[in-house]
Design a protein around this nucleic acid. Structure first.
Lengths: 341, 341
DNA sequence: ATGAAAGCGCTAACAC
DNA sequence: GTGTTAGCGCTTTCAT
């Protein structure tokens, strides 16, 4: 690896000049010199040393992507199609803009905070942070940050978040089920925070609107992990009688539920209707194809990158809270009941 | 962000001493000083500046993960569960070892090579590189490298690769089909290079062993991309008569094929048997559950990390070519024909 | 149009 | 036990 100094010495000129041609500041450099320098650069395949550059400029060209991995839930956070697609989209956009993606997944928020300052990351994209964590981050990290899928229940103005109309998604999906004649609809999730909470609120709202009373037992809790899933699915099955539909908070779980029920003799959608949320690849591929709420995952990533780069460049951001639309995709996993309840 | 120098000045001591206590080289430092320094470190939340450290030591704590994205095939390389799980496992192992993961996906190998020297990456993990690319990499990158899923058809000794008994997987899967009474078995893939080639070779070998002649038309080509898939699936359907089984080179495609056929009136496995390769989450979840070849993806990632870190630390590696085992998982997508051919 | 030199924060060889 | 100092490769201000 040749350095600027070496090039300068080799050509008997100063590092400033070499640096200038490297950066295209050729206003003040003679044609001859430019050519000489460029020739050496080509020949010796000069590549800048990022560590040196970053040190001198007190910045990095790194955008960090961080998420909290709940070890119970994820033995591997990128196994989930949703995260994979999101990260893939982010990497692509960043690279096109000349930035680099560094991934950091940890259960410990303080590790994440350390990581930011250690690398002097130019900006941070954070996935699925919960309320308190956001506050802590805002307090301790003084770098541009963009959140994805976070909900702030306090002063909104400080944060930049790209999210989804989760509540509306929950509402519309439920409404769809209600209009198909379903009245006994369960909600399936592994938590009731953040996006899932919103989806749940939408679900309740729709029920209310149709004069269906929600009872606590209508919430079917799933426990992540191999063993947990097995148990909670069994539990779910036990409480199923009476229900005609289950609204799962994610496609991932919808597919699990669908197959568990089928393996235990239920026909879908004849015996029980199932819906999901996300519209991932596999929801389209499974049979019966899953009726679900569509979202544009790649777009989420792209917008997050756009926002973070604006912040990094000190540009003003008018829209700090971006909320992408949702859309119910009716496929084959819901039965239309005759409306004679 | 406080610096070592600032700590030293603040305490009226030298940077060396501060540095020593930071690195636990406290053999020569007095208890008192140690405590003083540690107090300041705590209080001011000292965090090392990686760029400075790396510059001084001529290394980084970065392990790069690179793959070539064929833009036709992947609009998003991490959308695929296989890659996602692999990268997730790698990130986790690296973090535990105090390293950082930087992802770099590009269609252009030269960009990948540049990236390595720009960041002075300590090591590189490369996924699915083909023959010529491997040679180029070996020539131009003089950093430790570990390949995943590569096949080198020349001098093997120089490379470190963690792969799979792909051929054996192909062989055993095919053998399984043959023993179930199938004789007209198609092979489905989108290429015939690298791992897919090996799987295909295994398939052919099994056929030969059972005195079944392979004809070129038995290879069903898939074209990636939305439109391409549609067309090639249609083509596949047209040539299906006569076949009793299809062996797909990946679960991903198997699931596509399965559903396409089902949507067009075929019953699985009654009309046609389908098998896959990889045993990803969704192959277990789909119904009928997919008969496939299992591999331990996370283990692949873990071993890759183990190897790269050994190389980075200058340790000798005895096993340079690691080949993980495969195992046929018989589920419900294959029909046992009566063996009266 | 070109150059000299200081400095970014950390490391490590060497001195006392 | 502690301190001095010269780099690492690049940027940038200020001279010339």
């Amino acid at each position: 690896m040749i350095t600027i100094k070496e090039i300068a010495d080799m050509l008997g000129i100063s590092t400033t000049t070499v640096n200038n041609v490297i950066h295209g500041k050729t206003g003040q450099v003679s044609k001859k010199t430019i050519e000489k320098v460029q020739k050496v650069i080509e020949e010796y395949e000069y590549v800048p040393n990022m560590n040196a550059r970053n040190l001198a400029q007190n910045k990095s060209k790194i955008i960090g992507f961080a998420m909290k991995a709940r070890s119970d839930k994820y033995e591997n956070a990128l196994k989930d199609t949703y995260t994979g697609e999101l990260v893939g989209a982010i990497e692509k956009c960043l690279r096109i803009s000349g930035y680099f993606l560094m991934i950091y997944i940890s259960e410990d928020l303080n590790q994440i905070i350390n990581y930011v300052s250690t690398w002097n990351v130019d900006g941070l994209i954070l996935l699925g942070m919960a309320g308190d964590d956001c506050i802590l981050l805002k307090r301790k990290v003084n770098k541009p940050m963009v959140f994805i899928d976070s909900y702030f229940y306090e002063d909104v103005m400080e944060y930049v978040n790209v999210g989804l109309k989760d509540m509306q998604g929950g509402y519309e999906m439920t409404k769809y089920l209600l209009e198909c004649g379903h009245r006994k609809i369960g909600f399936v999730a592994d938590n009731c925070l953040g996006v899932d909470r919103e989806r749940f609120m939408g679900y309740k709202q729709a029920l209310t609107e149709y004069q269906v009373t929600y009872k606590d037992e209508d919430f079917f809790w799933l426990t992540p992990g191999e063993k947990g899933m097995e148990d909670s699915l069994k539990e779910l099955f036990k409480h199923l009688p009476g229900y005609t539909a289950l609204f799962c908070a994610s496609d991932y779980y919808a597919i699990y539920v669908m197959n568990y029920l089928r393996d235990h003799g239920k026909r879908i959608p004849d015996d029980i209707s199932i819906t999901g949320f996300d519209d991932n690849v596999y929801s389209q591929i499974i049979r019966p194809a899953l009726t679900t709420v569509h979202q544009e995952v790649s777009q989420k990533g792209e917008i997050a990158v756009e926002k973070i780069l604006k912040l990094v460049n000190g540009e003003e951001i008018k829209e700090r809270i971006i909320i992408l639309p949702v859309k119910v995709i009716a496929r084959q996993s819901v039965k239309k009941l005759t409306k004679t309840l």
